[in-house]
Amino acid sequence: MTAERISAKFEACRSEGRAAFVAYLMAGDPDLDTSFECLKALAASGADIIELGAPFTDPMADGPAIQRAAQRSLAAGGSLAATLDIAARFRLEDKVTPLIVMGYANPVFSMGLTDFAERAAAAGVDGVITVDLPPEEDASLRQALAAHGLAVIRLATPTTTEARMKRVSDGAAGFVYYVSVAGVTGAAVGAEEDIRQGVERARRLSGLPVAVGFGVRTGEQAARFACLADGVVVGSALVEEVRAAVEDGAPKSAVKRITVVAQSLSNAISSARVVRSVT
């Protein structure tokens, strides 16, 4: 029953013969209001699904781009609670774009699993990714979220063997986030053939759509992944636009910058399979 908005979106993209564009932004970066505007800009520029990063002081699975985004957010008053507030504001205006909250376990435990699940559900969040909660540790979160129809999105990686993928699939919901390369967010992308096999395995064993992320920066890379997977996640490249805006001394210009980049990524992903089948 979980995460109907997520399934509906992947289904819609499939029927249009294209991959879903999954866009990541850090909530509260560069400040709470601007990040809300950026979120709306993403949805208006072709993002099919939005991952809303919840800031954490110690983001051990993230590369420098998202580490800095978390620090900017925290400095501007960002938190898990503020992330859910931004999600709620977004949901008032947009009823169709699935929202995934992505972050680390400690702020979630600190809020309390029951509180978190209630507040996330009330905010219109559809799914949750906690990077440091592998299947062995996420049972209590899954239980709390399931009571509200929210999905725990599982991650699969190049180190996920066939046997391990069965473990990851057991209890997976929404979609599987396939990490393209052993590394942190924003790292170099992995080899295409390895990714193809990893995505195929994740899809076969989980029965869920698979989105590929980590290291997708350019439209060209996004297009390649759009031919392999049901969704393509772009994070660091968008987050770096916020940084550029801040460094220009014009944080509000992040909205315009994000719009431009998101549109180009969306076009690349939408047309990828057409281009591939022609050439």
Binding site: D132, T160, V168
Partner: peptide
């Protein structure tokens, strides 16, 4: 499960779990 009472565990990214 690697727990001392309620403490301990394996809270790592999936990439590290097999290792």
């Amino acid at each position: 499960n690697g727990r001392f009472g309620e403490f301990g565990g394996r809270y790592v990214a999936e990439t590290l779990m097999p290792l």
